[in-house]
Design a protein around this nucleic acid. Structure first.
Lengths: 128, 128
DNA sequence: GCTATTATAGATATGTAAAGTCTCTAATTG
DNA sequence: CAATTAGAGACTTTACATATCTATAATAGC
């Protein structure tokens, strides 16, 4: 079980925009270069963030991506959910038991993980 | 990102052995039937638990699997590590930065998850 | 309006790991 | 020795992440 590289790219892009580009749009090419990933692939990832309202995109010359107005509230969990989806880490597909005690333990542990990721805002890392 | 089905099978097998089979070995066939998985595949998973010392196996007629003597100490995290490996959920492969702040946040969150899984023992679920 | 630039969308390819099967071997019981 | 059971290895299948390629849409500057 691992977080995808796409999540990694998305988080690093968010952090870069927050740190380095408060105003001007940044094109996908410089973002892709600095992360050693192809521009078309990164753009596909960033489009997911656009659809979730975390960043804005501007087409055309001098276009690119900017953070949305509410960017200071965006948490790690928000970004991860945008990229990986929101389904649970653990699916207990056995005998359709709604009261599976194993599932209860796993979901409770996942909640601890999510709480931490929800409380970690991208903006917390900027001040450093 | 999801936990594998193999982890699911392993956890359910551990719980079953703890609840229903304190003494007699249980063959892989009944264990596989009740989980709707092929016996050879399940045996491959259980062999990993054997190698980690969580269960014992006995070949031959009337053989099967039994819990090891220290089974009451075995945690969810132990089982998960045996099946999924121990590597981190998040690999930050960018620019080889040893001080990546994103990685720090992710690892800290993972720690919360692991703490919960470490404190959840299989034996805790038996008393119910 | 034309051209360059930039994001978006869709189809397609590639790589990798999980999930599962098949067959043979080894160990144990009776 | 025969039946039963676990283990090991090669192999197949499936699913998903990771791209790539090409075409389309939107915008800026001239």
């Amino acid at each position: 079980m691992k977080y995808s590289k796409a999540t990694n790219y998305a988080l690093h892009t968010m952090l870069f925009l927050a740190k380095e580009a408060p105003n001007k749009p940044v094109g996908v090419q410089p973002l892709a270069e600095m992360q050693n990933v192809s521009p078309t692939y990164l753009s596909k990832i960033l489009t997911k963030l656009v659809k979730e309202g975390m960043i804005n995109s501007v087409s055309g010359a001098n276009g690119g991506y900017t953070l949305s107005h509410n960017w200071e509230d965006i948490s790690f969990l928000d970004v991860i959910h945008a990229i990986e989806g929101k389904s649970s880490l653990f699916e207990c597909c056995l005998y359709d038991d709604p009261k599976c005690v194993i599932k209860e333990v796993m979901l409770s542990a996942e909640e601890k993980l999510e709480n931490e990721l929800r409380n970690s805002k991208i903006s917390n890392l900027v001040k450093k």
